[in-house]
Design a binder for these strands. Structure first.
Lengths: 201, 201
DNA sequence: GTCTATATTCTGATAGAC
DNA sequence: GTCTATCAGAATATAGAC
């Protein structure tokens, strides 16, 4: 049972890449098996069904994507400014390595919203985070109560994540080589926190 | 031939709604036919194939989405500031009515990138627009040559479009009722141009 | 133009030999 | 654990009657 994990791991690794690239419906078990150098009977032998396999991979992706910043959101020992810098930096670093994850998550939410929230996102409440409270307080102190803090959170996430979501389009429309695009993303680590600071001061 | 367009139009209208909501692979011709009150033979009679039908609808959606702002991008008689205001306002108005269009386009690009650029986006070059040139000049005048104007364009598009792309998620994570979300989007018509102005001055 | 019936292909899943 | 063969269902597309 614990003897030979090689085939199982290969299947999962291949499935992960294909699901992330082409989604659940865009991927067939036969393709996964073939790419993993085996047959579809083994895919079902190890993972019971395509859906089970998919759920494992989606759960891991969500974990990677959200859990990696939860500690930043709820750190009691850092200022708002530091939190924003760390948040942006961590996301850009992570997305540089795995740029397809956000689109993967968004696409699957789109094609299966109900199941998604029941199964995966059970109680993620941004209003209850330390970061959100610090932001609310800060806006009050600066006499900017009229600006809903949700706007600022949206802006941070927008400016950080959106460029990765539209990456395939940007490359086309701006005629930009890969390394130049990467360099831009690195610049944004410093720029986004600066822009956000201007918004809230 | 030009006598009775009713059935054809109904099929197309139904197909449009379903494709935009569930994508190409997520939609079946049988569903389209059934929803349109007919059978799948007629779908193929009028549109030859599922793919042909889809291409028509995607082309129209892209046209709606891009063509609607081309005139703003290339207006020779407005300032940079006015252009930004109009761009944001037009997109937010349009997306308030059709919030699923961006995700529709992005999803289909993801599942079929090659065909997409060959077939649909043949030569959209943002660097050659009047807006882009005005922005470049403005940054120079303000001694901000170090900031690539692409950053600013990305920010405008990010802050405007991203909230609609993640709408299903936002509603869940922030526990926000629909009308409140709509109100926020309306506020952003004024806020985004203001924030962008701060960035470039 | 419209419909029923059917051909064809593809996909997820399982049975059963080794 | 691994493979071949096969089933069951669904989907696109078309043939042919009206």
């Amino acid at each position: 049972m614990k003897k030979d994990k090689k085939t199982e791991d290969t299947i999962k690794q291949v499935a992960r890449a294909m699901f992330i690239q082409k989604g659940f419906t865009g991927t067939t078990t036969r393709e996964i098996a073939s790419e993993a150098g085996t047959n579809l009977a083994l895919v079902n032998y190890y993972f019971r069904s395509k859906e089970q396999l998919f759920k494992q991979i989606m759960l891991e992706s969500l974990h990677e994507f959200f859990e990696s910043v939860v500690d930043i959101f709820n750190d009691n020992n850092t200022t708002l400014e530091i939190k924003l810098e760390r948040l942006v930096e961590r996301y850009i670093d992570q997305l540089t390595q795995h740029p397809d994850i956000p689109m993967f998550i968004l696409s699957e939410i789109r094609s299966n919203p109900e199941i998604f929230f029941k199964e995966f996102l059970k109680g993620t409440k941004i209003r209850q985070t330390v970061l959100f409270n610090q932001l609310t307080t800060h806006l009050k102190e600066k006499q900017k109560q009229k600006i809903n803090p949700i706007h600022i959170m949206m802006n941070v996430m927008s400016m950080t994540l959106f460029p990765f979501i539209v990456k395939p389009m940007i490359s086309q429309v701006t005629e930009m080589p890969e390394h130049e695009y990467q360099a831009l993303m690195q610049e944004r680590k410093k720029l986004i926190p600066m822009w956000v600071k201007q918004m809230v001061n």
